[in-house]
Amino acid sequence: MNLQLMWESAPRLLGGTALTVQLVLLSLLLGFVLAIAIALMRLSGIRTLSSFASAYVFVFRGTPLLVQIFLIYFGLAQFEAVRESIAWIVLREPFWAAIIALTLNTGAYTSEIFRGGIQAVPYGEIEAAKACGMSRLMSYRRIILPLALRQALPAYGNEMILMVKASSLASTITLLEITGIARSIIARTYSPVEVFIVAGVIYLAINFAITLFVQRMEHRLTPYLHRA
């Protein structure tokens, strides 16, 4: 065990944390909005919308994230039309290609989590909202979505951790986030164990922080369960 190497690689690996966090936060944020839209489409009762939503979820959950990243980053560049369009400014950047792939991926998984949450809202609450004269939009905004999101929080916490792990795939399209930097140090020094330990500790720390955050959120959102 080379402690010197571990000590030296720590600052470089920590430097990659900023990119990892950026990738995760941005794609979680965009994926959250996408997931709500997809879940609502799925439950809309309008056939075209709900079958589009199920097809999307089916494809993105049934294929590896790596294929999705490669299709977006390498695949789309095959077409002349894409390379000459305005979208190319975004698509040629590995960072944005990774963000798009991660967003579409988490959007599919998260929409299923939210769908479960929305379906778990007791029917009596929806009836009560109707009886109070709330419109469909208002009952979603005031009653259904808040209850659904609270219900979905523990599962969503797991999805956040999966996204931290998924962001490591951005290293396959040249991005130097934690795993990308770890790979380059390993390839140069051939000391996989030392680098793995340091990078692993950083990832575990991030995921531990997420777990604590989600637990505190859950505690705050369910005051009726632990009134003193």
Binding site: T179, Y190, N207, F208
Partner: peptide, 22 residues
């Protein structure tokens, strides 16, 4: 279970790919 489920799969693959032979 905590370590394997909390660390990216890719990192574990690199560990064994570069470290397995050693």
């Amino acid at each position: 279970t905590t370590i394997v489920r909390g660390i990216p799969e890719l990192l574990i693959i690199y560990l064994l790919f570069f470290g397995g032979s050693g």
